[in-house]
Simulated scan of single mutants.
Amino acid sequence: MPRIPVTSRRGLLFGAAAVSAGAALTACTSNEPKKAGTAATTAAAADDKPGTPVTIGFAGPQADHGWLNAINQNAKDRAAKYSEVTLEITEGSNDTAAQIGQIQTLINKKVDVLVILPADGKALTQVGLQAMKAGIPVINLDRVFASPQAYRCWIGGDNYGMGLNAGRYIGEQLKDKPDAKVVELAGIDNLELTRQRTQGFDDALKNYPNIKKVARQAAEFTVETGQAKMAQLLQAQKQFDALWNHDDDQGVGALRAIAQAGRDDFFMVGGAGSKSAMDAIKADNGVLKATVLYPPTMAASAIDLARALGQKKGVGGMSELEIPASITLYSAVVTKENVDEYLPTGFI
């Protein structure tokens, strides 16, 4: 894609069998609140003792968005934790041709393992296949390649689960309110991830017959579009009870529009887990009451998985000798009751 709008940063699940990261995978990011630490140290690896030296090539995104920057930082910080790990990191790119060239350079350097968050999973599938054929295992991070042969392990977020848990939270808050109304500020509609989030949200609301979704507006995961599209929603909808916004970065703009309109007659649920959203939830002095996580700590877990692959180890807490083929992270709901536990993982 040309400058992939911040939009396609999150991956599409192509139906690969997924293992919940909520299981006791100590080599991957834990969603257990009490284990939350700094963004890059939220979990211990399968074996923290130095082992065989491993060179990990990391090809990530251009850090033009808070979540994307957090992805890159989590990878760097996690690799620095291990004295035997060398991280060969490319300059992040949202241009598919540029990223293919960067990955081919890492292949030519004969790194031991590759961690790739592709600018476009489908477009970069061939370079993933090239790495695998060269004997370099690939950890496919979030935006999935079109072929499972292009990676050894996929790890990423759960877009359907985000919508489902957002809908459940809103449903529980409004379950006793007759004729409750909700609105949705989505991402870009031509992205499968946006459709998955909306589908999960709609499926959850089916369990609450008293709640009706009265409006939906698609934004573009930016502050500016969030503000503009939210202003349109507010103008069109003079009364509603809850708002689900797919992304905390576009949510900054949405909150500006809400403040400018002087509206406080509803509550808002965000998505992704930015620090600014968690700070607002903790302050509890505005409409934002919760956010549904899409954890950038997945990049730290990808480094753990790459290290385990390079050292021919499995995942701590599991009996298998090999790492899983697929890991889907859980989309926890952060509220004022648990925000302190998740704040260390909030991205800027």
Rank of each mutant, 00 (worst) to 15 (best):
R152S: 15
L141N: 09
E192C: 04
Q73T: 12
N159F: 13
Y160F: 13
Q126N: 13
G187H: 02
K81G: 10
V113E: 14
G200N: 08
N74V: 10
N207L: 13
K76Q: 15
T198I: 12
D112S: 11
R143L: 05
T198E: 14
G92C: 09
R195A: 14
L164I: 02
T105G: 02
G171E: 06
D202C: 05
K109D: 14
I71S: 07
I100H: 01
E88Y: 10
L68S: 14
I71G: 11
A186T: 11
N94L: 14
L193C: 10
E88F: 06
E192P: 12
K81W: 14
V113F: 00
A80T: 09
A131P: 06
P148L: 04
D158A: 11
L193G: 07
T198F: 12
D77P: 01
C153W: 07
I103F: 00
K81R: 13
K206E: 10
A180G: 04
V85P: 00
Y160W: 13
R143Q: 09
D203L: 07
K76Y: 03
Q73A: 12
Q196M: 15
N207T: 06
T86I: 03
K177F: 06
G92K: 01
N165D: 13
K122W: 04
T125M: 09
G171I: 03
I107A: 03
S147F: 05
G200T: 08
M132A: 05
Y82F: 14
P148F: 05
A204P: 11
E88D: 14
Q130M: 10
N74D: 15
Q130V: 08
L205N: 02
L87S: 05
I89K: 00
T198W: 12
V182W: 03
T125C: 10
N159T: 07
D203W: 08
P118W: 02
I116R: 01
K81C: 13
A123K: 03
K181D: 10
L141T: 06
K81D: 14
V183R: 00
N108W: 02
A166R: 03
